[in-house]
Simulated scan of single mutants.
Amino acid sequence: MDAFQKEIDERTNLTASNKFELLLFRLGSAGGGDIGELFGINVFKIREIVPMLPITTAAGTKPPLLGMVNIRGQVISVIDLPAVTGCTPKTGLNILLITEYARNTQAFAVESVEEIVRLDWSQVLSAEASAGGDLVTSIARLDTNVDGGRLVQVLDVEQILDLISPVRQSLDHSHAGELKSLIKPGAVVLAADDSKVARALIEEGLHALGVPCIMTRSGKEAWEKLQSLGAEAQREGKQIADKVALLLTDLEMPEMDGFTLTRNVKADQRYKSIPVVIHSSLSGSANEDHVRSVGADGYVAKFAIDELAATLRKTLLR
């Protein structure tokens, strides 16, 4: 038990150095090759890995949903991940990745699991700046010192889940006037998220609340935008609070994660007064404790616009 707890603590502490661990897996080939492309998922989102179990197909189940499995009394939906990505597994669907995203538990059926690798977020590039497809949020470079080194596609799981079961946002409109009154005229919420669907939901929600925002695709992009706004405020003889009312950030992002972004903001005398709220699909008390340890002012799990609005209001009133 002590060794197991030490391993958990070690993985949690990776975030202090902008590092993380990626589980590598294969889904089969999209073009008829012998070896399928490598895909990855953050280890923090994996609850467990189990061999394929008997699947119960409910009436009306449509691809890419395969059905349901029973794991220790919990009924979990199974998603055919190769079908989502257009891959064909040569040896079948052999493994279930039990994952936790945005308050939900689901199983992804994959062909095989390869290994766990430890990476720096600087090794991960936004797929929007490369040739990544719509379902790929970022590209991880495993062998950075080797020409032709391996590349791993990190799937936009939030996009995949939204395709299967679209997020429906309901809003208590009483929040709208409250939040708007707490933000200085001309100031914005600066938001960072690497998922296209997450950015769209955040932007739509903040717009419904009457809150102006600037969306960025990574912690690095948000940090650079904050510095640009800070320089603009200085030239105009204003405070940073006249430009940025609050920073809303995801945790997992290419180049710079949300933990590092938060530490950068709180360690800089120019920006440390800006409230930071973590908005993440990574759930669990360990993550929430670590959020507090890096100096964030609030935490809210994705995606519930009313809870986001309530958290923003609480943070801005401090």
Rank of each mutant, 00 (worst) to 15 (best):
Q5C: 12
E7G: 10
E10Q: 14
R11T: 11
T12G: 10
S17A: 14
L22H: 04
F25L: 08
G28K: 06
G28D: 04
G28L: 03
G31R: 12
G32K: 06
G32D: 07
K45L: 09
R47T: 10
L53P: 10
P54D: 11
I55C: 11
I55M: 04
P63T: 07
L66I: 11
R72H: 14
Q74I: 11
Q74S: 15
V75Y: 00
D80P: 08
P82S: 03
V84Q: 08
T85S: 11
G86F: 10
K90L: 10
A107T: 02
V110M: 06
E111T: 06
S112I: 04
E114W: 11
E114V: 14
I116V: 15
V117K: 09
R118Y: 01
D120F: 03
S122M: 12
Q123Y: 02
S126R: 08
S126A: 12
S130I: 07
G133I: 04
T137F: 08
I160V: 15
L161K: 09
L161W: 06
H173I: 13
S174T: 14
K180T: 10
I183E: 06
V188L: 13
L190C: 01
D193P: 01
S195L: 06
R199M: 04
A200Q: 10
L206Y: 00
H207M: 13
H207A: 11
H207K: 13
A208T: 09
L209K: 05
G210K: 09
V211A: 03
T216D: 05
T216C: 12
S218Q: 10
K220M: 09
E224W: 08
Q227A: 12
S228K: 07
G237F: 02
K243F: 01
T249V: 10
M253V: 01
P254V: 04
F259L: 03
T260L: 09
L261F: 10
T262L: 04
R263D: 05
V265M: 04
V265Y: 01
H279P: 03
L282G: 07
S283C: 12
S285Y: 11
D297G: 13
Y299F: 15
F303S: 01
A304W: 05
I305L: 06
L308R: 00
L312M: 11
L317G: 03
R318F: 07
R318A: 06
